[in-house]
Structure formats: structure tokens, C-alpha cells
Design a binder for these strands. Structure first.
Lengths: 259, 259
DNA sequence: CGTCTGGTTGATACGACTCAAATTTGGTGG
DNA sequence: CCACCAAATTTGAGTCGTATCAACCAGACG
């Protein structure tokens, strides 16, 4: 019944939409609440891989919720350098409140073909006023997203290439685990080495060589868009990975919905 | 009457508390709203320079609002490496909603002697329900803080040492400008070269040499905790600084409070 | 006057980048 | 099902930016 464990041998069930599984890492939801989440997910669209969902300068008209596929937030510099700022996997909201700002200061792009729910601000505020526990869970979601962002700053600022990649792989594995999309140390991994480079502030050449090191050290396997973590304990040690920042140990986690 | 301009020759007035000036970059506040902000700022404390305001692992019991002095958010790794994740200057809130999470995943430390308001969650929610425009402005504040965090990830991930420092100096100058604390390209700058190193992911030795380059190129002066930007235009060019992410051009900026 | 913190300098080492090319993989259409 | 093409991965050689280590210096402070 535990939705997440750090041990790769165990894994979470995947009993429904990723959002539900994800928010239930924070608080148990009632059937009505699950239905409400499903309802706002009915209006969705597909985005082809490598296409932008939102581009810098646009104004957000909807809250996006990733139903399937991976996306990333990125910023591009005038000289063409690109930094992937964040990754979105199923169950992630892209900017619950971004529509407040006049113009996006970055872009959101699809990594794989993407299925995203388009939720209007009105639906969003109806959802949160009607279901306070969902509102609370969305708060938690946003705060965790901010914490992940901070950890990324630390990652590119202080860790070596080897540690950076190790850290990123672990984070992704655990986040997928919390939406029931990783099992036994294994998960989908659609990022190219170029994407990894842009996410870690390295070059793709160096990512390539560093991944080979991680493989040589029997820490991971990574091929055909599939990641297998072979030794999570040691991988966490070398990455100096501290799962605190994912805030998966909330006290409300095991509470049942009261209605 | 414009609260901010990118031209170093101009500067904003500083008509009262930094928070008010800051939030008025987003929306004009009424006298009552200003009073409300002043009221929640009455309960403050001082923190000595170089001491922690909150340490990793603690639970936040208050929202902190910097009234005077500088602080930083930082994370430390087991090997002693430190990354400064964010800077707080007067008018900045530290984590409007952090009390939702069980434990802080980072620390907040004073850079200078610090005067911070301690606002209880209850005061906070009273403030926002009673004054919706303040609630809106706090939203904007949080979204801008998130945008700054993203820009920092880009900064350490993609820019050279020279660009990183240039970018950071500009950001600080502009943020101080929006609370009326910089004028004619000049502002306080209490960070040591060590702090700069931790904020940019460089070593203090390299920061030292790179600052010398920036001085040699007649872009800045920096001594005795005072920064003087000598050529903002050129500095922005070399840093590839795009002020978008500070979201200072909100349409509501020039609106008068309607009550 | 000594001590301490922060800033500066020099010499050397290394992690990561650059450029260029080869190889493999995956998708597409004939 | 195979041929083809583009995208992604891999390899090698050489370079550069930044780190490291170790002094030394200047000003602030008790």
C-alpha cells in the first residue's frame, strides 16, 4: 500500500491516471475527488515529439497536465545554447498559476509524443474551491516542483558530470515510481544524450563518455530508451542523492479520504 | 513615477517599506493595503550576519519577509560544497507557502545583519483573504521568484564565468532598483567573493580573477561592498541578459488602486 | 599589535569542451 | 523485406576554462 519506496526492488501500483497516483503520494483522495480530476482531464490534445507546447513570449491560456509522454521546460540563449530547466512526466502539471504572468519567459517542448490535458483557469479555480484537498495537494505539487528546481541549480552548480547524471537518473526514476511508471529499477527513458546534455549543462560528447563510465561501474544500463538502475544504493552514494527534496514523506500520505 | 527602468541613470523612488515598493511594481496598492502590509511587518526580529534564519530539516512556522539586509537560500552537500540557490533582498518574502511542507530541504542564512518580519500562516491567510489585490501581488511575487530560480539554473548551466557574474550583478542591481535601493548604476553589494562563488558554481579564486576582468573591461566597479555598473548596455550584452524573466512589465503596474 | 577575514597572485592539474569523423539505430518508403 | 536516410551514439585528438594548492597582502577589529 505504500505508494513509493526508495528500494528499486519494490514499486508502486498504477491504479489509474498518473495525476491521481501522484497526488495520493501527498494525501488520499476520495472517489469524488478522483472523478473531479478525471473530469478536468477530458479536454486534452496531442503534441508531436520535439514540438513546442508553449513558446517563450506567449501567454498561457490553460494549465497543462501531462497525461502521457514526457515534456521539458527549456530556455534558449541568443547564441543557441539551450538549458533544459525541468522535466515533466505523466501526472505533472506545467505551471498551475502561470496564466497570471503576461508572457512566458521560457518554452515547454514535447520530448515524446505527448498527451496533455488543457484546463482553463476557470475549471482550475472551480476544482480547487470545490475540492479543498485537491487544492492542498496542488500546493504540495507546486512546492515540490520548486524544490526540484532548486536541486537542479545545485546539480549543475556543484556536482561533477558523473554525479550530475547519476543524480538526474535517480530523480527521474523516483518521480516515475511515484506515478507507478517504474518497477524493479527499470523505467522508460526517452531522453537523448543531447537532452541529457542540455539538462545537465554538459556537452553530448561528454554525456556519452560519462554514461559509459556509469555502465562500466555497473551502476546502470541504458539502451533503447530504457533505463535499468543496477545498484541504487551505490548510485545514490556517488550522486550524493538526498531524497528529502522530493517531499515524499508527508504525514498525510497514509490518511484515507474522509468522505 | 515609473518604479523601474533598465537605464542605470534613472532610478526608482523609495517612498516606504521595500515590500510596498516591490509589490507596486505589479499593482498599485491603496493606503489601506499598505497599512495592512505594515501591520504584518510589525513582528520582526534581527539575525546576525552569517547566521541561519532556518536550517535544513526544520519546519517553517512563519513566513519571513526581509525588511532590511540580505539573506540567501543555500544547500550544502555532504562533501561540504555549498550552492547558494537564491538571494533575498529587502522586500522579498522567503517562501510564502513553505509551511505546508514537513521539513525544509535547504537553509536560509543571513548575509548581512538581517531584519525580518515573522508572519504567522494565520496572519498570512487573513491578509490575503481581506486584501485580494495583495493576494494577487503575492502570487506574482512567487511566480517571479520561480522564474528567477529557473534563470539561475540557466546561468550556472550554460554561461561562462564572465557571463555568469555579469548576469548575477545585473539581476541584483535590477531587483534592488525595483525596491528603490539602487541609483545611477550604484548599489550596495555585501556579498563576498566566496558568496559569489557559491552562487555561480565557481571557485572564489576564479571569481576574483573574473571580477578583475570585468573591471578591466570598464563594465563595473566593485569595492567596499559597493557595486557600480559602469556600462549597463554592454554588460547586458556580454551576459546575454534578457530582463523578461523578472516580469516587471505587468499591465497592472500603472493602475491606481481603486479604493 | 597580533589576529582574522576577505582579497589577490602564481604555478600547475584536470575535467569538460571542441571539432571531426565513423558507426549504429530507427524510421520510412519502395 | 530491404534500401535508404536522418538521427543518435560513439570514438579520437587536441585545447581551454576552471579548479586546486599554496602563498601573500590589506584592512578591520579587539
Amino acid at each position: 500500500m505504500t505508494p513509493l519506496t526508495l528500494v528499486p526492488g519494490k514499486s508502486s501500483p498504477s491504479p489509474g491516471p498518473a495525476v491521481v497516483t501522484k497526488l495520493e503520494a501527498y494525501t488520499r483522495l476520495s472517489a469524488d475527488e478522483r472523478t473531479a480530476l478525471a473530469r478536468v482531464s477530458r479536454n486534452f490534445r496531442f503534441v508531436d515529439a520535439r514540438r513546442d507546447l508553449i513558446s517563450e513570449g506567449e501567454r498561457a491560456r490553460h494549465v497543462h497536465l501531462v497525461l502521457d509522454g514526457w515534456a521539458c521546460r527549456y530556455k534558449q540563449m541568443p547564441d543557441g545554447k539551450r538549458q533544459i530547466i525541468a522535466l515533466f512526466v505523466p501526472g505533472d502539471f506545467c505551471d498551475v498559476n502561470a496564466y497570471i504572468l503576461k508572457a512566458f519567459d521560457h518554452s515547454i517542448g514535447a520530448i515524446t509524443r505527448l498527451k496533455v490535458a488543457m484546463i482553463t483557469p476557470e475549471e482550475m479555480s472551480a476544482l480547487t474551491t470545490e475540492w479543498p484537498r485537491i487544492a492542498q495537494a496542488l500546493w504540495w505539487h507546486e512546492l515540490v516542483a520548486a524544490a526540484v528546481q532548486r536541486e537542479w541549480t545545485l546539480n549543475v552548480g556543484q556536482r561533477t558530470a558523473y554525479q550530475r547524471l547519476a543524480h538526474l537518473l535517480i530523480e527521474i526514476y523516483l518521480r516515475l515510481n511515484s506515478v507507478g511508471r517504474s518497477h524493479n529499477g527499470r523505467c522508460d527513458f526517452p531522453l537523448t544524450q543531447n537532452d541529457l546534455a542540455d539538462a545537465t549543462g554538459l556537452t553530448s560528447v561528454h554525456v556519452n563518455r560519462t554514461l559509459q563510465e556509469l555502465r562500466r561501474d555497473a551502476l546502470i544500463e541504458l539502451e533503447r530508451k530504457q533505463l535499468q538502475i543496477r545498484d541504487m544504493k551505490r548510485l545514490m552514494e556517488v550522486a550524493m542523492f538526498n531524497p528529502n527534496y522530493l517531499h515524499l514523506e508527508h504525514e498525510g500520505r497514509h490518511l484515507d479520504a474522509s468522505n
